[in-house]
Amino acid sequence: MSELHQSSEAHEQSHHVIAVKTYVMIYWVLMALLLATVLASDMPLGGAHLLVAMTIALIKAILIVLFFMHVYYSAPLTWVTAVGSFLWVGLLLGFLLSDYFTRGWLHILGK
């Protein structure tokens, strides 16, 4: 019985209807972030260019995942899956960068 209840709840969650107004609002936020990316590329940020661009991209991705992909209204398991996927990408990038950042630390004679 409780499983039946859970499954009907999950069904409702997966079919949550998002108002058109919300979609439009997210769309304009994305456009604003796009503009921010373009403007940031012309600003004198030095080495922070990549960081700023990636941060804006991450915010855009999160908005798309939450609203356009309906994760915001989904069951907890969907949240776990979405967050887990991001963690896994973070894992790849984290270990990758740990290699890149520490390659020059060891001073080898003659090199």
Binding site: L91, F95, S98, D99, Y100, F101, T102, R103, W105, L106
Partner: peptide
Amino acid sequence: LVWGHHMFVSGQSMYA
């Protein structure tokens, strides 16, 4: 979490 053990002699950082 262990893939770098295939790359010990690849030029990967010793610390990694």
